[in-house]
Design a protein around this nucleic acid. Structure first.
Length: 262
DNA sequence: AAAGGCCTCAACCGCTGAAAA
DNA sequence: GTTTTCAGCGGTTGAGGCCTT
């Protein structure tokens, strides 16, 4: 009854992948495509479980992976999508061709979250943290600082500086006035594009889609999985404008081909 | 130059819904 | 309808590199 077990973990390798393992997996998928991850490691001659192979392919070996840091536009888009979708990293990643959910999740946890916290915003709720007013005695946010920070233009001095939240209506957020802070945030967002998604909008001053036009050039194919019928060719594995594999492919071609025979 | 702390990110873990038997 | 296994997802970990003192 039921299916056969994926793999027994006894005798399987764990930890970082070697170049040889990468090449074995690549060779196999390029030749055969992916039909069932369970049998991939066996047929490819790998001492890994199918799950591990899948992860390695998706997060590292896929030919269309876009390497390198995130652009400001990408960061803004991530924040916008996180506001809309929450921690649904795969859904968010589906809006970024060549980016993986793992990559976006890591970037969120290591960079964007900190940025937002520094600005006194709750990264989970996308709204000012409750205790921001307590911090406001020593930390105040200027509108210009806030926007430039979101866009990654923050200077070292700015990070150290006290900040002032300044709006049309009030020059400084008063202590214990969270309602005013929230209101000011809305106004601020309406004036400064791209960060509207940072805050939960209860009114209709600004819609989340207001900043979407910035990213209209970002398109995406429907499926992020790669099957044999996806027409992967060896040419796709070469370096292109958008592909910058971490491991130079020369490294593979210089190795003894016999090593990788299936 | 060395030590300790911090940061990044690849990889693993555990859960869930879907599908096979 | 039930059981079992799968692929996929999000959370977490830890090795290694970087930075600061």
């Amino acid at each position: 009854m039921g299916r056969k077990p994926c793999c027994d973990k006894i005798g399987l390798r764990r930890g970082p992948w070697s170049i040889e393992e990468d090449h074995r997996l690549m060779n196999f998928i390029l030749k055969n495509g992916i039909h069932c991850w369970r049998i991939v490691p066996k047929l490819a001659g790998l001492l890994r479980c199918g799950k591990s192979c899948r992860l390695r392919w998706i997060n590292y070996l896929r030919p269309d992976l876009k390497r390198g840091g995130f652009t400001d536009a990408e960061e803004n888009r991530i924040m916008e999508l996180h506001y809309q979708l929450g921690n649904r990293w795969s859904k968010i990643a589906s809006h970024f061709p060549g980016r993986t959910d793992n990559e976006i999740k890591n970037h969120w946890n290591t960079k964007i979250k900190k940025k937002m916290k520094h600005l006194g915003l709750d990264p989970d709720m996308h709204e000012p943290m409750n205790n921001i007013t307590n911090q406001s005695e020593s930390k105040q946010i200027t509108k210009s600082n806030m926007c430039s920070t979101i866009k990654g233009e923050q200077t070292k001095d700015q990070r150290k500086d006290d900040v002032i939240i300044e709006t049309k209506k009030t020059s400084i957020i008063s202590k214990n006035d969270e309602e005013l802070l929230a209101k000011n945030c809305k106004t601020l967002c309406a004036e400064e594009v791209d960060i509207g998604f940072l805050f939960k909008m209860q009114g209709n001053e600004i819609s989340v889609s207001s900043s979407s036009s910035l990213y209209s050039n970002i398109s995406r194919s429907e499926s992020s999985s790669y099957l044999a019928e996806d027409s992967i060719s060896l040419e796709q594995w070469g370096l292109t404008d958008t592909t910058d594999p971490f491991v130079p492919w020369d490294l593979f071609t210089n190795l003894d081909d016999n090593l990788f025979l299936l």
